[in-house]
């Protein structure tokens, strides 16, 4: 499905459902910021890339919203749309949950991969949606691996936006192996001398954070994003003591040297372009623009 078609599909009966997959905006003129309670006009919020103009709260974006504000207009071509999730462990209720999230998001899986241009630079682009908690199962891992393989073959940089609760429990040990699979695919892309840019968005935890999401040549994050090894619920279960107030946030990760920069949403695309200019040569983007 193209971005345009997807946006069209949101207008209609399933619009409310689609929006539940990310931070929902009620169908109306205004919404209340979940962080500072400011009343925000939806039109203004959309214009501000869904960032609260008062407190800077970054609403979660759907995969296609992310593509729309990242890829040069009309350049994104989705690949690997034919991969279908099975239930390899016969895990109870798994199929039902998959079907529920397919209906909610209009997607086959949380990982959406494709070819695009950013500032005129051709790239492999991966974005994620809140499908099964953004979790990584066999299809997700395969899509990441194929994106890196295609980018290696075509000598393209990879730009990856992550949003994930971690490995998908319903596929058990097979999900764990996707960590190794994706890390190995990054290794080959990296050995080919190609750049890999990661943008960590809220939340990026556990199996995804401990694999391809932490292996970028450049790692950025959105402000306030939850980022860490232990998933939110696992961390809560572990009952960690002495947690600093900003524990497992983008700010904590920056403080400890784990990411390059925190980028407000509006600065992400311009910064990616600067990095691509640095890695690939500037003439590409000036030609295209």
């Amino acid at each position: 499905m193209s971005a345009a078609a997807w946006f069209k599909s949101r207008v209609g009966a399933d619009r409310r459902l689609v929006r539940q997959s990310v931070d929902a905006l009620p169908d109306g003129l205004w919404t209340k910021c979940p962080k500072c309670s400011e009343i925000l006009f939806n039109k203004e919020l959309e214009k501000n890339l869904r960032v609260c103009s008062k407190c800077g709260y970054h609403y979660r974006l759907s995969a296609w919203e992310r593509i729309q504000i990242t890829a040069d207009e009309g350049t994104f071509k989705e690949i690997e749309t034919g991969l279908v999730t099975l239930n390899p462990l016969n895990f109870p209720d798994y199929e039902a949950k998959i079907e529920r999230d397919k209906a909610k998001t209009g997607l086959n899986d949380g990982m959406v991969v494709g070819l695009a241009e950013i500032g005129g630079h051709p790239v492999g682009l991966g974005v994620t949606d809140w499908f099964m908690g953004g979790s990584m199962g066999s299809v997700y891992g395969e899509k990441v691996a194929r994106l890196f393989e295609l980018a290696t073959k075509k000598k393209l940089p990879v730009v990856m936006f992550t949003m994930s609760g971690g490995a998908r429990m319903q596929e058990g040990i097979l999900s764990l192996m996707q960590m190794a699979k994706t890390a190995a695919a990054v290794a080959r892309h990296s050995k080919a001398g190609l750049p890999y840019i990661v943008v960590l968005t809220d939340p990026t935890t556990a199996g995804v954070h401990a694999s391809f999401a932490s292996l970028g040549d450049f790692i950025f994050a959105e402000p306030g994003a939850l980022i860490g090894f232990a998933g939110a619920r696992v961390a809560a279960q572990a009952g960690l003591i002495d947690r600093p107030a900003n524990f497992q946030t983008a700010e904590f990760q920056l403080e400890h040297g784990m990411i390059d920069r925190i980028l407000p949403r509006r600065e992400i695309k311009p910064t990616i372009i600067k990095v691509l200019d640095f890695c690939m040569g500037k003439e590409v983007s000036s030609d295209a623009e």
């Binding site: 960590m179 190995a184 080959r188 401990a210 932490s214 292996l215 960690l240 400890h256 784990m258």
Partner: peptide, 26 residues
């Protein structure tokens, strides 16, 4: 499991595991 305490997180437990898998693969 790997340690997920505050200091493990502060020194990049995710990065360490990810890096190992990547380096072991080659």
């Amino acid at each position: 499991a790997a340690d997920c305490s505050v200091d493990a997180e502060a020194r990049g437990i995710s990065e360490a595991i990810a890096r190992n898998m990547m380096e072991m693969s080659v």
